[in-house]
Design a protein around this nucleic acid. Sequence first.
DNA 1: ATAACATATAAATATTCATTAATATATTAT
DNA 2: ATAATATATTAATGAATATTTATATGTTAT
Lengths: 101, 101
Amino acid sequence: MCNEHFQKVAFLAKSLSDENRLRIILCVSNGKKSVSGIVEELGLSQPLVSHHLKELKRSLLVNIERNGPFIYYELVDHRILDVVKTLNTMATDLLNARKTF
Amino acid sequence: MCNEHFQKVAFLAKSLSDENRLRIILCVSNGKKSVSGIVEELGLSQPLVSHHLKELKRSLLVNIERNGPFIYYELVDHRILDVVKTLNTMATDLLNARKTF
DNA sequence: ATAACATATAAATATTCATTAATATATTAT
DNA sequence: ATAATATATTAATGAATATTTATATGTTAT
């Protein structure tokens, strides 16, 4: 793995390093969601959701589609869900192992 | 996935969100490495490596073992390498897809 | 054109984080 | 005990980031 790879992986990992962004990723993984839909579903402020969606767009993880006044976001690459799942089980295992010893 | 899960995943992902930390993770994935060994192998400053190792210890990703004046670090859970690999291929694919269209 | 609504952006703030330089702690050998 | 080496910690600094408040932009209907 060369420098370029490390940079790209770190950048993509940064997308997963915030709780609210994770929630948004999961939220847009079940088909297109409008911004207001995400706002309502997650109970976050609209500018905050917009900000995180911009970050996810920067990392190329979401697709954007306009329909009238609504803008729909959708998860592009569902492999990110496998990553989240693996990290989740890993975190649980690591914490359990620590408590055991 | 409940709140607790999001928090844990975000925390673990944060460990992967820095280039130098990724380099250190890869470095300690091939058996125990002393701090000075890592410093030499990666060309990073000693305090910087110590700091990142502390973070990796916080996230329970590394084991510590003392042997005389040396302290050895080793990757605990190699599933993290699968995650890095997936993120790497994903990043490459996403960038390629963007250039294509 | 105006009103109403959806989304984005800007400014401001607080917090986190990576890095460096300097110093402290701990271990080994003399 | 002292010197030398390995590692950790502290303080300082600058950059990045999450969040909020306020405002702007863009779209639709009247």
